[in-house]
Design a protein around this nucleic acid. Structure first.
Lengths: 225, 225
DNA sequence: TATTATTTTTAGGTTAACCTAAAAGTTGGG
DNA sequence: CCCAACTTTTAGGTTAACCTAAAAATAATA
């Protein structure tokens, strides 16, 4: 129902940096963010524009940067992932703090939900974290997954039907590409049309129209709604 | 001058795909690589050009793709990282095979050496792999890594550099011709000049000057000296 | 409050990694 | 041996994420 936002890696980095700076200093300025990420202030400025468009931060020209509600949510989610990874690498594998932190930083953007969950399980079992912890904020939606029924591959949906994306079955780059198009878990799609041979297929996601090759659509598991 | 090769994520992906395709089918074609990575053939083509420049693969126009010695090395390294991650995620954390594979794919490019080593330690302790395994191929040679990869195809050497011929990769008439020019194993060559488009290339061997077409030079594996 | 210093923004790039469409080259079947 | 089908390459884009240099706005201080 909510317009679920998709963040690129660097957008996540910006958010996280803002989140941490606010926690530490009470405020986040363009230069602070730039310093903490090691990039130019002008680059940060551009990034903030996008976060602003997504409604995750609020900034007036030359003014201080604040997180909106959904901004805080998103930032906490990223931060939480970071913490899980850090703890896992450092506490259970014995990786040095600094390296663990760097690795967490690079992995947090790409690791699957499932792997995160498994790490959390492991950390709980070994008493490194407790169930009450931040670790769980992003995990709520587990059983919803097994609500089975009415699951199809997107290419077999009929014109006019609506569905929710459950999973992208392909790997690597293709998966990435599809996700970048907005086809993330939970996204609502509507099949607007199909060419005679079923290729390509016209769909609508998050307000955008886009057309998929049939073999691409065949990689997308959806639940009819 | 250290010629240490640094590979971007996608270059690593290309290498890995080539490596696997050759293992599975005996050969890797542009379209196969494109399919296995889910990207357009033309994109692969461009990527291959770069790998070629780095001396990691060898391809003649419209011809099959082969890995050079250093190409195989690099590919094995990446593949090995992939395997470690896969085993770790799947065997010790219980992540599902498919997801573990995808995650391995994204992480393999960015995880630190140290974290890899810790995972290997863990895998050995729990008897998922043995010391003899591939897992170590990329770990012994930390300093050797800097030495390595001074091997190039002659056409990718810069003007002014000197090298020793290791092998002529072509066969038949062309090989004969090149050998007759004095390009035998062990011969010392110096690159005297290149025409604007890299074709032809002026070299000096055993006191003679001679000029090679680029695709001829691309058949000659040399070690920089 | 004027002047200097700092911060933020704008303008105008670059690069890597993709893309589509079409041309060039190769191959297999009639 | 020729043509249709496929593969590979070329040509000409796009986009995200950076950059530098300089202009505009704000803050500090003498």
């Amino acid at each position: 129902m909510e317009a679920k936002i998709t963040l690129s890696e660097s957008m996540e980095d910006y958010l996280e940096a803002i989140f941490n700076l606010i926690k530490e200093n009470g405020s986040a300025r363009v230069t602070d963010i730039a310093n903490s990420l090691g990039i130019a202030a002008s680059s940060v400025n551009q990034g903030l524009k996008k976060l602003n468009e997504q409604g995750l931060i609020k900034q007036q020209k030359y003014g201080p940067i604040k997180l909106t509600q959904s901004g805080v949510q998103a930032a906490e989610k990223v931060n939480c992932k970071h913490q899980i990874l850090y703890l896992f690498l450092h506490k259970t594998l014995g990786v040095e703090p600094e390296t663990a932190d760097q690795d967490a930083c690079s992995i947090e953007h790409v690791l699957s939900q499932q792997s995160f969950e498994k790490m959390v399980d492991y950390l709980i079992e070994n008493n490194y974290i407790e169930e009450q912890n931040c670790a769980f904020k992003f995990m709520e939606n587990e059983e919803e997954e097994k609500m089975a029924a009415k699951e199809f591959m997107l290419d077999s949906m009929s014109v006019g039907s609506k569905a929710e994306v459950l999973k992208i079955e392909s790997k690597g780059r293709l998966k990435r590409k599809l996700m970048d198009m907005g086809l993330n878990r939970g996204a609502r799609v509507e099949v607007k049309g199909k060419a005679p041979m079923g290729d390509p297929i016209e769909i609508k996601v998050r307000g955008y129209s886009l057309s998929l090759r049939q073999d691409e659509a065949a990689e997308i598991l959806v639940k009819e709604v």
